[in-house]
Design a protein around this nucleic acid. Structure first.
Length: 961
RNA sequence: GCAGGGAUAGCAAAGCAUGGCCAAAUGCGAUGGGUUUAGGGCUCAUUCCCGUAGGGGUUCGAGAGUUCAAAUCUCUCUCCCUGCACCA
């Protein structure tokens, strides 16, 4: 068993002592690789190894490719989480404290965590320790925390630049809002953590001809306007006459209060809903006059409190009208007009697919002309829980019609419903017959933690305008030149680049940099970390020179990052000596041209998109992003790792238990880049076993001698070199799983096979092991160092070069021969199994197995046939003149029926296959209870089965005794 | 609703871009054998169905199509997952 802990510590110290990972500019090509800095509100667990370990593996690989690699790290602490954390500690939150104990945080430290600064510095230190233990090749001299004043100066400068470019604008945006706390409400601020869903709703204006006042009917389906029979109001609610932008409307009092956050509303008078019931209103789509009726389901605090009634398509409307009828409410005769039909198959009007599921297919609606009724019937609306049924019917019908509906009346007859909806909506808006409002659209009302119902507010604040046309075009122009791994994410990025628009830039609470253009606010905490990687290139210089915060004026960054002005001018403006300023500038210029950004997929729609935009918006073209790498998450024994599931393993515990390298290997090479890795203890132990095998192999080298190369040696060389070649190309594409399947799992199998086949050439095995260990160095750096030194090397493998494939050693025929041997063994096995059942062979064992290798003309004839697809042409070909015609015809005819499906095969050198089989006789014999194996050529064979031999499929003749 | 992704054998998961060496890699699980045999570790074999010689049959969400040939291309459908703004 390998003692991982002691190996890790030994080599980590060696790296530190040799300062292998603290690079400064030199003559080599630079490569700067950064991963999203971790947030300091919890210690790291083993899942984090996926991102930072993948980044490290790539950094180490690049280093071995001869690049001067910088892998820096910082920590993120701005925004509200750290504050919230401190508050929870101050309140002695038990859940949080228990969680911290899982991570071995001492009670003493926990007590002090009511101070946000303490939290940040505690976890900063804790995380650094974990990352060092995992063996990341990080330059820790450049570490900083995003709430440090020197960093804030940099962020401030960033925002001056955005403002200067015109990318920061003031604007309005609908957000969830608590009227009690007068605060924006996000998911974390609501009861049960629901995300307030804000949607646009169209308000259609129905004019009361007697007064000129409008009934504003809120609807998601303005296209059903053709089927309106009446308007519903809540007879028991208080209504107002409100003036909105010059027009007067009837609204519920509550609706008016809510809409006051979205519009300028002047309330003129109040009245009871019942007073509206005598009125009439004009439908703007066809100027028909409809009555106002009481609707039992109309809620006074939803929408406008005025609803247009479309009984043919809205189950609630239908039910309400039925109820009125049964109560003998006086109302005029009305026509339920179907507006939309759902086509189903060829049999005319159907009720759609979802309904047939519900009603188990036997559904035959009696009233297809009134879909709302049909749905209710089929869902058995006579049920007690009537409201539930009606609601379910509403949802189903809405979904069905929105998906499959075709307009049956009006201007847009024949058009698909969703398309017609947009056109009608646009038309109504244009003609002044409607306007849009925003509303919280969740099924259930959303409440703030304080208990107040969340409504929509339109706030006026600073935004970063990612919708800026010029900016967006710049990004669209550069993005195709960026490398994206995995490449299939490119489309996602493209869509997001199109989609991203205004984004709030300020926040009223949290840690961070003061927003420079409005009092009392801080910069939103994703916006402050979009170009921070620049800071790594010179932060250690600032620190070493003890530069004061107040010296970090815009002039400094302007020169260091953009090269504007000059070092002397910066010196006189800031007092920082010109030499230091120039060093910062040179460092930035050197490092920030060849960069790679790594993160988990959750940051794609926000951080990574903003990362691209901000770079393009602020930096010079040569410093724009070059490549982005996105890696997936990690599951633990089939489940997502989460604190609530209790399956979180802190990094330090994981390393203690499994070893840093096996842990790294499983997480990094366990799955393709963008998919979730399954972490399991079984996987780890299989890595342990393989590492031990490598260890034993290295030890066994001393007992091996060098000798002349045989077929199996050439085969192993060939495998080795094709593995190096394949692995290198996988590494270049950051397909770490494929790369390490080749380097590790497959290579070990090849080595085993080599030994199994009797290979024992010390020179060959040593070369194989050396290259394999070199290629393992990026992912299992500690173990690789250990193996490297066991192989007698005195250098650090971290500073060695990646092996280069020798293509001339890749020997396709030798590899093919091995495959044929393998397949032949399988065939023999199968044949024995089947023929053993024959009566004559009962109680017997195979005594001799003849393996008959096909005559060389066969593969020639075969390939000729595949190329010409014509038997006659092959028969008459001069190259096959020496072959017996009858035999040739028999051979060829067996392929004729599948002639079009056959593929040409490589022709092996004459005699190669036979020689290899002869060499392998002992190996094969071993597999069949030491039966005698005779490999012979078809020509020399006396077996009756000899003529059955095919080019890559020797004939087999089994003799039983 | 909008946008993106997915559906492969008991499970997990490759392959589909460039259709044919795909009954489909690999891992786990299961079954059997070996190992001075501990139900552990390691190791070998088997793991869709049938088969008295290396063969045949039916498979890659469902259906249709293109093709000599489709897990792979086209179309339609069904189902699942993720994100959607003040939240890091």
């Amino acid at each position: 068993m390998i003692d991982y802990r002691s190996i890790e510590q030994k080599w980590q110290k060696a790296w530190d002592d040799a300062k292998v990972f603290d690079p400064e500019p030199d003559e080599r090509e630079p490569f700067m690789i950064t991963a999203a800095f971790p947030y300091v509100n919890a210690p790291q667990h083993i899942g984090h190894i996926r991102t930072y370990g993948t980044t490290d593996t790539y950094a180490r690989y690049k280093r071995m490719q001869g690049f001067n690699v910088l892998y820096p790290m910082a920590l993120h602490a701005t925004g509200t989480p750290v504050l919230a954390f401190a508050k929870r500690i101050a309140n002695k939150d038990k859940e949080l404290i228990d969680e911290l104990r899982i991570f071995h945080v001492a009670d003493d430290d926990i007590m002090r965590m009511s101070d946000p600064e303490y939290i940040a510095s505690y976890f900063a230190k804790e995380m650094e320790g974990g990352m060092r233990a995992a063996g990341y090749s990080i330059d820790w001299r450049r570490k900083f925390i995003s709430i440090e004043p020197i960093f804030s100066k940099f962020v401030e400068w960033q925002f001056y630049k955005l403002k200067e470019k015109g990318y920061i604008t003031r604007g309005k945006h609908p957000i969830g809002w608590c009227t009690n706390e007068k605060n924006a409400v996000g998911q974390h601020d609501t009861r049960h953590d629901v995300q307030p869903e804000i949607q646009q709703v169209t308000v259609v204006k129905f004019k009361d001809p007697s007064s000129g006042i409008f009934f504003g009917c809120a609807t998601y389906r303005p296209e059903t306007l053709y089927g309106v029979t009446n308007i519903f109001v809540n007879g028991k609610a208080r209504y107002v006459i409100a003036n909105i932008d010059g027009n007067r409307y009837y609204l519920t009092k509550k609706a008016a209060e809510m809409l006051a956050l979205q519009f300028n509303i002047v309330i003129e008078s109040e009245l009871d809903g019942s007073e509206l019931l005598s009125k009439k209103a004009v439908n703007p789509i066809d100027n028909s006059e409809v009555p106002i009726l009481p609707g039992f389901f109309v809620k006074e605090d939803t929408g406008t409190g005025v609803v247009m009634s479309v009984p043919a398509h809205a189950p609630f409307d239908y039910v309400a009208l039925e109820r009125l009828k049964s109560e003998n409410y006086p109302m005029p005769e009305m026509q339920y007009k179907r507006v939309v039909v759902v086509e189903k198959g060829g049999d005319g009007i159907g009720l759609g697919r979802s309904l047939s599921d519900v009603s188990a297919g036997q559904a035959k609606a009696e009233h297809p002309e009134v879909p709302a009724l049909a749905y209710l019937e089929l869902l058995h609306a006579d049920d007690k829980a009537i409201d539930d049924v009606v609601e379910f019917a509403t949802k189903l019908l809405y979904r069905e019609e929105s998906h499959w509906g075709i307009m049956d009346v009006g201007e847009f007859k024949g058009m698909k419903e969703p398309e017609a909806r947009e056109l009608i909506k646009a038309k109504l808006l244009k003609e002044g017959n409607a306007f849009n409002i925003h509303t919280v659209a969740n099924d259930e009302p959303v409440y703030c933690r304080c208990g107040t119902k969340v409504i929509v507010n339109i706030v006026d604040q600073w935004f970063i305008n990612y919708g800026d046309k010029k900016w967006k075009d710049l990004v669209k122009g550069m993005f195709p030149h960026m490398a994206i791994y995995p490449e299939k994410l490119r489309l996602t990025f493209d869509n997001l680049i199109d989609w991203i628009d205004l984004r709030a830039a300020e926040r009223s609470q949290g840690l961070g940099t003061k927003f420079p253009f409005s009092e009392g606010h801080i910069i939103e905490s994703l916006s402050d970390s979009t170009i921070y990687m620049c800071f790594y290139t010179f932060v250690h210089i600032i620190r070493a020179k003890d530069i004061r915060v107040d010296q970090l004026k815009p002039e400094f960054f302007e020169y260091v990052i953009l090269g504007s002005g000059g070092a002397d001018a910066v010196e006189s403006a800031t007092g920082i000596d010109a030499g230091t300023v120039n060093r910062c500038r040179e460092s930035f210029e050197y490092w920030y041209k060849n960069t790679s950004r790594h993160s988990a997929p959750d940051l794609v729609p926000n951080h990574l998109i903003m990362y691209i935009f901000n770079h393009v918006g602020i930096l010079r073209k040569e410093n724009w992003p070059k490549q982005i790498v996105v890696n997936g998450f990690v599951n633990y024994e089939g489940e997502k790792m989460s604190k609530s599931l209790g399956n979180i393993i802190p990094v330090v515990d994981g390393i203690e238990k499994y070893g840093a390298d096996p842990l790294r290997f499983i997480e990094i090479a366990g799955a393709d880049l963008d998919t979730t890795t399954e972490f399991s203890a079984d996987g780890v132990s299989s890595v342990h076993a393989r590492n031990s095998y490598i260890l034993e192999s290295i030890k066994s080298l001393s007992s091996m001698k060098s000798k002349e190369l045989s077929h199996i040696d050439y085969w192993l060389y060939s495998k080795l070199n094709s593995k190096i070649r394949n692995a290198t190309s996988h590494m270049e594409g950051i397909s770490l799983k494929s790369a390490y399947t080749e380097i590790y799992y497959n290579s070990i199998n090849e080595l085993k096979r080599y030994m199994d086949r009797g290979g024992d050439n010390g020179i060959v095995v040593r070369e194989f092991l050396e290259d394999m260990v070199l290629m393992l160095a990026p992912i299992m750096p500690h173990v690789a160092e250990e193996f490297w030194s066991m192989l007698g090397k005195s250098t650090l493998i971290a500073k060695e070069r990646w092996p280069i494939a020798n293509d001339s050693m890749v020997n396709e025929p030798e590899e093919m021969v091995e495959e044929i041997i393998d397949r032949t063994i399988d065939d023999i096995k199968q044949s024995i199994e089947l023929t053993a059942k024959i009566g004559a062979n009962k109680e017997k064992r195979p005594s001799e197995i003849k393996i008959i290798i096909a005559s060389p003309w066969k593969s020639k004839a075969y390939n000729m046939l595949v190329a010409r697809k014509n038997m006659k042409e092959v028969m008459e070909n001069g190259e096959l003149a020496g072959v017996d015609k009858e035999e040739l015809s028999k051979f060829l005819s067996q392929f004729m029926k599948r002639i079009n499906m056959l593929v040409a095969r490589t022709e092996l050198e004459e005699g190669l296959l036979l020689r290899a089989f002869v060499e392998a006789e002992e190996y094969i014999s071993d597999k069949f209870g030491n039966a005698k194996i005779v490999a012979e050529s078809e020509k020399d064979s006396k077996s009756a089965r000899a003529s059955r031999a095919l080019p890559e499929k020797p004939s087999i003749d089994i003799l039983w005794d």
